[in-house]
Amino acid sequence: MASSSSSSLSRVVVKSSDNNLFVVNKKVASQSQLLKQCIDNMEEKGTNDVILIPLSNVTSNILTLVLEYCEKHADFADDDNNNQELKQWDHEFLKKFDYATLNSLTMAADYMVTKSLLNLCCQFIADSIKDLTVQQIRQIFDIKNDFTPQEEADIKNENAWAFR
């Protein structure tokens, strides 16, 4: 990593898949391992220019959410995940979204390597689907039932206790 302050970047520009530009402070961007890697690489090369990072998989509305999360979490230390205020904020943050948004947010967190957001989304989805019916699960995850009626009945019969 470059040690001189002259080649240290303070901000980066991130481009969403629908071509919107976001100026992001380095500390915030570093919450994403993907962005952090890009910044580190550029700093190693000694670039002074503001760099542009295109994210071909993330739309601007989802990117806004990821960055909102990163901004909040950048204010806390890495080992502060048990902070009650932060936990509360995380919960309120995710509570607002429908499953489609949650899915996209989860995929974006995965793609941008924002491990804590990915874990948070997975846990939130797990908690909310725990008591749902099989039919509801298929709907939410857009899954086609590829069992024959007989197969499905057999599986249900064999595990009837789990459906009570």
């Binding site: 846990q123 725990k130 008591d131 099989v134 995850f141 039932n145 249900k156 595990n159 459906f163």
Partner: peptide, 14 residues
């Protein structure tokens, strides 16, 4: 992250 009973139920999702 889900309990076993839920997972057994979800065997017939697909």
């Amino acid at each position: 992250m889900l309990p076993v009973k839920t997972l057994i139920r979800f065997l017939c999702v697909s």
